[in-house]
């Protein structure tokens, strides 16, 4: 029981279910397909970025460039004026390319120049914000139809955003079992031990930042589908929500522990919360207060669950035991 509680994923799942039940009582038409699709659409960008950020946090870093990449992807799409599917594809490719470039720069700075991740990604975040303003000096424009409403509609009965969320879950579960998936936990737990057991820590970190950059760009595309227009300074609140999602999911800031599944559930909690506040009729003036409070409370909950886990010394997973070479 304690083991289950100590897992951030379980805790996030419990909170999500509890919140959803409260939400169901707060409004009559919660269970309509339309409402469910809406909720999934809101959650999708959070889910994708939270998956990327979790990887960075597991490897022991932090990534502020997330907000910059999301904004950059958004303004790139909003300035694609062609209107055809072709120009939309060009826009998406450019957006993803931007994410990869920024991720590579982060990775290079952190992994090979040993710059502290907060400082390096603060720099790239500011760079991205600047570039976003250059591409699009003031909010406006519209994204190609292929993106919006394309990515927030449904394929048959299944919403596109549900497919995207499921893809994140499946991809992460598969990734965790790969060699690289094990290595990121090793590097995050104890970098020098990982290096001594033959893991190329710098290469692992570089690839994590690269992958995270790409995921943020994908999240930016999904977010653009939701907003349908461009905003060069619109990412601050989104970024905070992603931090909160990862914190609720139980990832440990400092590295070595965390699960994208937990973060994805955390993103779900926040998406439901937004809907619930709206349904209950809280003025938008005060949304910020709730979001700030949730962020802090989420981290506290995460830490309490970690502490519950630490009271049992045998709560070391098989993966970790194999990595640290400690006998069972």
């Amino acid at each position: 029981m304690r083991r289950a509680l100590s897992s951030g994923t379980t805790l996030a799942a419990i909170i999500l279910v509890a919140m959803y039940i409260v939400y169901m009582y707060s409004s009559i038409d919660v269970l309509t397909t339309e409402n469910a699709t809406d909720l999934l659409n809101n959650a999708a960008p959070l889910v994708i970025s939270a998956t990327g950020l979790t990887l960075v946090i597991v490897v022991g870093g932090f990534d502020l460039s997330l907000g910059g990449v999301v904004t950059l992807a958004n303004v790139i799409l909003a300035t694609q004026t062609g209107g055809t599917t072709g120009s939309a594809a060009v826009g998406v490719l450019l957006a993803l390319l931007a994410g990869v470039v920024v991720g590579a720069l982060n990775g290079f700075l952190v992994a090979y120049l040993n710059v502290q991740s907060i400082a390096a990604t603060l720099g790239t975040f500011i760079m991205c914000s600047g570039l976003a303003l250059v591409i699009m000096p003031s909010p406006g424009g519209s994204v190609p139809e292929f993106i919006s409403p394309g990515l927030i509609s449904s394929v048959g009965p299944v919403p596109v955003s549900l497919l995207v969320i499921l893809a994140c879950v499946v991809a992460y579960l598969a990734f965790r079992r790969t060699r690289m998936g094990i290595h990121i936990f090793a590097v995050g737990l104890d970098e020098s031990a990982a290096i001594q057991s033959g893991i190329k820590a710098a290469a692992v970190k570089f690839r994590v930042y690269l992958a995270a950059g790409l995921l943020y760009a994908v999240a930016g595309v999904m977010l653009s589908a939701l907003t349908a227009s461009g905003d060069p300074n619109g990412s601050a609140v989104f970024m905070v929500l992603v931090f909160a999602a990862v914190a609720i999911g139980g990832a440990k800031f400092g590295g070595g522990r965390g699960s994208a599944i937990g973060s994805i559930l955390g993103a779900g909690v926040l998406a439901v919360l937004q809907k619930m506040l709206f349904a209950v009729g809280v003025s938008t003036f005060y949304t910020g207060i709730f979001q700030g409070a949730i962020l802090i409370v989420a981290v506290l909950i995460g830490m309490i669950s970690l502490r519950l886990g630490e009271t049992r010394p045998r709560a070391v997973t098989t993966d970790q035991r194999a990595l640290t070479g400690r006998p069972a």
């Binding site: 932090f62 907060i118 609140v237 905070v240 931090f243 914190a247 800031f253 003025s283 003036f285 005060y286 949304t287 910020g288 207060i289 709730f290 979001q291 700030g292 409070a293 962020l295 802090i296 981290v299 506290l300 830490m303």
Partner: peptide
């Protein structure tokens, strides 16, 4: 005391304080 990482703590209070300013002025 609560051992919340400072960028999380202050990002949270940034949102809360901004919310108070917005709520107090109503825009």
């Amino acid at each position: 005391v609560l051992k919340v990482p400072s960028f999380i703590m202050t990002l949270g209070s940034q949102l809360i304080v901004a919310g108070i300013a917005l709520g107090y002025t109503k825009g």
